[in-house]
Amino acid sequence: MQRVLKWSCATAVLLAFTAAGLAWAEDGVKPAQPEPTTVKSLQKQLLEENAPAPPKTESVETASAATASATAEDIEAGGLSPSVIALLLFIFVLAIFIGFEIITKVPPTLHTPLMSGSNAISGITIVGALLVAGDGQGVSAFIGFLAVVLATINAVGGFLVTHRMLAMFQKR
């Protein structure tokens, strides 16, 4: 019971921080803006509104910013605020703690399925792959395509093979 409590608390903290970060980043978004996909692009808009003349002009046509057919202003925007980076780091560390908490309770019997299952989860790179695959042209598009294929093999194959294994454990 206590474990469940501890674990839920950790999740709640993670949830709270992410939600706070989202709300904070959302603050600066113009209602009519087409959808940007990342905290980064949101943050760019935020900075742009509050500081109309950013000190340096960068071409920020990154995969993430460009994803949402960003406007010209978007591309003129400044950099990412350090607090967003801090937030990501925060989430990263908290997630590691949650991972430790949960994984230590996995019985040795399930270590192989755990490994192949978590391995499939690391196929999440597919999200990044999707974001770059369509944006680029020529070489970068091809690299993105390759990344999509590899990450999909990783994710689909990983989950399936884990399922096969776990089904054997569940037979009785």
Binding site: I91, F92, A95, I96, F97, S122, T125, G128
Partner: peptide, 11 residues
């Protein structure tokens, strides 16, 4: 990506 990567890393 950050969250799930961290989970797998910890595991």
């Amino acid at each position: 990506l950050v969250v799930s990567g961290a989970l797998v890393g910890a595991s």
